[in-house]
Amino acid sequence: MTNPAPDRLRFTTIAHATHRYLSPLSPEKAARLIDGLALRDGAEVLDIGCGRAGFLIDLVDRAPVSGLGVDLNGAFIAAARAEALLRGVDARVRFVDRPLADGVGDTASFDAIVCMGSSQAIGTFAEALRWAHAHLVPGGVALFGDGFWRRRPDPGYLEALGGATEDEMTTHAGNTRVAREAGFRVLSTACASDDEWDEYEGRYCAAIERYVDANPADPAAPAMAARIRAWHDAYVTWGRDTLGFGFYTLLKPASPAP
C-alpha cells in the first residue's frame, strides 16, 4: 500500500510551529525593516499572508499603528490572535482567515502593505506589486519579501521544487526593476543571510522530524518524513547557494515622478 501524501496545510502548520517569522528573517533585521517603513502614528497596515503574524505583531508593538493580517491557515491565525493578546496589542490588530479578496474590499486602502513571501496570494510578484500599489494611499509604503536566484538553478533543484522553472523568478536586481515598473520608488533593499536561511530551514526540518519521531502511529508520518528529508537534502545540496530572499522597501509616490 502506498503511503498517502501529507496534507499540505497540516504539513506547513507543523513545520512552522517554532518559527517567529515564516521567512528567513532575524528579529534584528525585522526591527530595521520596521523602522525603515517610517510609519506615521495611526497608520493602517495590511499584512498579506501574515502566517503566525510575528512580523505584524512586532510592527504594531514597535510603532503606534493598527494592523490587519490575512491568511488562509486557520491554525496560524489562531496562534496570531493568542500572541497578540499575550503581547498586549490585540486592540490594535485583527486577523482574518479568508482569501485576500474576501478579507479586503476592492476599494480598501492602506498606509502600508507588508507581503513577506506571499505574493502567490495574488499571483506573480509583479501582479502582487501592482495590487499593492493600487491599494496604497499616495505616499504609502510597501515592504515585500520575495525569492530570487543567486545563481542559475540546477535542473535537479528545479525538479526538487516541484517542477519549478527558471523563469518563475529573476535576480535581486531584477526584483527591484519589477518594483519600479509597478510604479514604486525603491527606498531600500536587503537580503536574507546564510545564517537566517539556516535558522529558517533548520527549524522547518526539525519540527517535522520531531513530530514524526513522537507520532510514529500517524499514517501520514512516513510520507512527512520522506518529504522533509528530500526537501532538506535539496536545500543543503543546491538551495543554500542558489535561492536568495530579498526585502524591498517601496514608496508609492505622493507626486508625479520627476
Rank of each mutant, 00 (worst) to 15 (best):
R87L: 11
L85K: 11
N73M: 04
M116H: 04
D71Y: 11
R94Y: 14
T107C: 13
V89M: 08
R98G: 01
G74L: 06
R81L: 07
V114N: 00
R92A: 09
M116A: 12
A108L: 09
L100P: 15
A80E: 02
A101P: 00
A112F: 01
R94F: 14
D90T: 00
S118E: 07
F110P: 01
C115K: 00
N73F: 05
A80G: 03
L100F: 15
T107P: 08
R92P: 00
D97V: 14
S118H: 06
A80Q: 04
E83A: 06
M116L: 15
A84V: 07
R87G: 08
S109V: 08
I77V: 15
R98K: 14
T107F: 15
A80H: 02
C115Q: 02
T107N: 13
L72P: 10
D111P: 01
L100D: 11
A80W: 05
F110G: 05
V93Q: 04
D111W: 02
R98Q: 15
D71S: 12
A91W: 05
R87D: 12
V114W: 00
D111L: 02
C115E: 08
M116Y: 01
V96R: 15
S118I: 12
G117L: 05
G103N: 10
D106C: 04
A78Y: 11
L100K: 09
A112L: 02
R87S: 09
V70H: 10
F76N: 11
G88W: 07
R87W: 03
